[in-house]
Simulated scan of single mutants.
Amino acid sequence: MMKFSALSLVLSSALLLAGCASKTPTPSQYSGFLSDYSQLQPAQSASGAPVMRWVSADFNIENYRSVLVERPQFYPAPTPHSQVSQQTLDDIALYLQQAIRLELAGRLRVVEHADRETLVLRSAITAVNLSPEGLKVYEVVPVALVAAAASTAAGTRDLNTEVYVELEVIDGRTSQPMTRVVRKGHGLQLENDSTQLQLNDIKPALDTWAQDARLFKP
């Protein structure tokens, strides 16, 4: 667990408070997984969650008959942490892929290889944030699970969990992007900074992302 002085805690609170209030990821939190972030605009997902999104003017979902859901990446590549094992990271990626496939199967044919009428969905989990309940300190560390500095002062205070994802949908024939989305979701609370994160803790966020993928309307 990272340790911070009292001064660094104060500075973290003052400098990063704006991120705490934001319901959508800010440019400073973009990972670099997507090739272009310049056209992202605030929008709402099908479930009403705030997202940053861009949709190509050429995108017409009626032009497609199938979808290829690539296995989600962790970007940058993760290093297992004391609160998350490699097995948990693998479970998260596999679960998200399967959940999206299951949801989209009711709308498009799910395939293993793209053709001229296929949409290819790429995604990356770019950060997980653990922040003490009720404290206004915010810190996102790409993939690695590191609690905010205030967790030391919080003792056994519950930790809220947030997970960030970036998605891109590509035309299987032209390889041109059709839509890009950056968003975050909320999981279950962890009891304290000694609690191991498990797949079940962030399933609520993963399930919502999968459902929104099915209900998406350009």
Rank of each mutant, 00 (worst) to 15 (best):
Q98V: 12
Y37N: 09
W209L: 12
L89V: 13
A18N: 05
D158W: 08
S31V: 06
N63G: 02
V165K: 03
E70W: 00
D201P: 01
D207Q: 15
R65P: 10
N129Y: 01
E139M: 11
V110D: 02
T118H: 00
L197E: 04
L9D: 03
C20K: 10
I170Q: 00
P50A: 03
V110P: 11
T126F: 15
L89Y: 15
L199D: 04
L89S: 09
A127S: 14
S151Y: 08
T152Y: 11
S13C: 02
Q29A: 14
L215N: 14
L7A: 04
V165N: 03
V84M: 12
I125Y: 05
E133D: 09
T208C: 06
Q83L: 13
V69C: 14
D193I: 00
Q176S: 10
Y30F: 15
V69H: 12
V111Y: 01
T161E: 02
L9E: 01
V67A: 09
S38R: 14
V128T: 13
Q198N: 10
S47R: 13
L108Y: 15
P132V: 09
R107K: 15
K184Y: 01
T208I: 11
N192D: 12
N200G: 03
A21E: 03
M52W: 06
K23A: 08
E166H: 07
D193T: 01
Q198G: 03
S85M: 03
S45I: 11
P76I: 00
L16Q: 05
E62K: 13
S85R: 13
R183L: 15
A105M: 09
L96V: 05
T195L: 03
T179V: 07
Q41F: 11
T88W: 07
Y37V: 01
Q73R: 15
L102R: 13
L89P: 01
N60I: 00
Q98E: 10
Y30H: 11
R101A: 05
L130S: 02
L89A: 13
I202M: 12
Q41T: 14
L102I: 05
S28M: 08
R173H: 04
D212P: 02
D115F: 03
A213H: 08
A150P: 01
A105E: 07
Y138K: 04
R65N: 14
N60E: 14
Q176G: 05
A99V: 08
A150H: 05
N129I: 06
T208F: 07
P204S: 03
E133V: 11
L9P: 00
V51P: 07
L40Q: 12
T156M: 08
D193V: 01
V84R: 10
T24V: 15
R65A: 15
T195P: 06
L199C: 03
H186S: 14
F33G: 03
Y138W: 14
A153G: 07
L34M: 05
L197S: 02
R53Q: 15
L108M: 12
L167K: 02
V111N: 11
E191I: 05
A21T: 02
A99H: 12
G19V: 03
Y164N: 02
P72I: 09
V141W: 12
A150C: 05
V163M: 04
P80M: 11
S194A: 09
L96I: 07
Q73T: 13
A205W: 07
L17I: 09
L121M: 06
P50S: 06
Q41M: 11
E162G: 01
P142W: 12
L16S: 05
T24Q: 14
S131Q: 10
S123V: 13
Y95W: 10
T174H: 08
L197V: 04
